[in-house]
């Protein structure tokens, strides 16, 4: 799997927020096998300089970072945040979020497409947090996105894949674009289901960070994602309405009755 020419062997992208402690975050990253973690930008205090310590910590993890524009509600805010992230993290990668609705944290897809175009023209490699809408996805690709990240369900909701049919259709329409289910994953079976659909990767955070044992859950997700991928490659059955006996009927002994 590759994102913008960068080859990765792990198909799990892990968020770094909401862990009980930095040590547990580090354990979870290790247990997950993730090669990419998401990070953010927040106001820094000249007195506390909390971000400085976090940055040294992340660098020691030895993983690639994918900065986000979380919390941005306008194109201008998201674009400015992306510029700040590019300088700070020294990467053209940006997980582009333009939030349109505060209860569901649903992306503002109109703003998203506009911001994606501005950033792609400026040399950014955009990972847009989007919905499963095919037309929006097409516009994002036209805008220069070479990865798409549809939601499974609202951020932090742990509801899994809300629209299996829509996610399937998206996969079918964009066979050559890396697709990552981002947001809404609650348990490893949700991640496995995304991978069985042929998705390239899964991005999650809260499901691991807020589990009772984050490192244990990270490992469970890693295994589920690998299992889902193997299942996809092995070409799973399609569901059917009628029973089909798995044991051969021919040759069965005739025993009366």
């Amino acid at each position: 799997m590759s994102f913008y020419g960068v080859d990765l062997s792990s198909r799990l992208l892990l968020g770094t927020a909401r862990y009980p402690s930095p040590a547990i975050l580090a354990e979870a990253v290790k247990a997950s096998g993730a090669e990419v973690v998401t990070v953010s930008l927040r106001r820094e205090s000249g007195a506390q300089r909390a971000g400085q310590a976090f940055w040294s910590f992340i660098r020691e993890l030895g993983v690639r970072v994918l900065p986000n524009t979380a919390g941005c509600h306008s194109v201008k805010e998201a674009v400015t945040t992306a510029h700040m992230a590019r300088e700070l993290f020294d990467t053209p990668w940006i997980k582009l979020e333009v939030i349109g609705e505060s209860d569901t944290l649903q992306p503002d897809v109109f703003g998203l497409v506009e911001a994606a175009r501005i950033l792609a023209e400026d040399g950014f490699e955009v990972f847009p947090y989007t919905t499963e809408d095919l037309v929006v996805a097409d516009r994002l690709v036209q805008a220069g996105c070479r990865v798409l990240m549809p939601w499974g369900a609202p951020i932090g909701s742990a509801r899994g894949l809300n629209n299996l049919y829509g996610l399937k259709a998206l996969r079918a329409h964009f066979p050559d674009i890396p697709l990552v289910v981002d947001a809404g994953i609650g348990v490893p079976s949700h991640a496995a289901a995304a991978m069985e659909l042929g998705y390239d990767a899964v991005l999650l955070n809260t499901a691991v960070a807020e589990a009772g044992d984050p490192a244990g859950m990270a490992r469970a997700f890693a295994l589920a994602i690998e299992a889902g991928r193997l299942a996809f490659l092995a070409q799973p059955l399609e569901p059917r309405d009628m029973a089909a006996p798995s044991t051969p009927v021919i040759g069965k002994a005739v025993l009366g009755g």
């Binding site: 909401r18 990070v39 953010s40 820094e44 300089r49 909390a50 971000g51 976090f54 900065p67 955070n205």
Partner: peptide, 10 residues
């Protein structure tokens, strides 16, 4: 003036 630094994110 806005001054930002790296922080945890999802």
């Amino acid at each position: 003036i806005e001054v930002v630094a790296p922080l945890q994110g999802g």
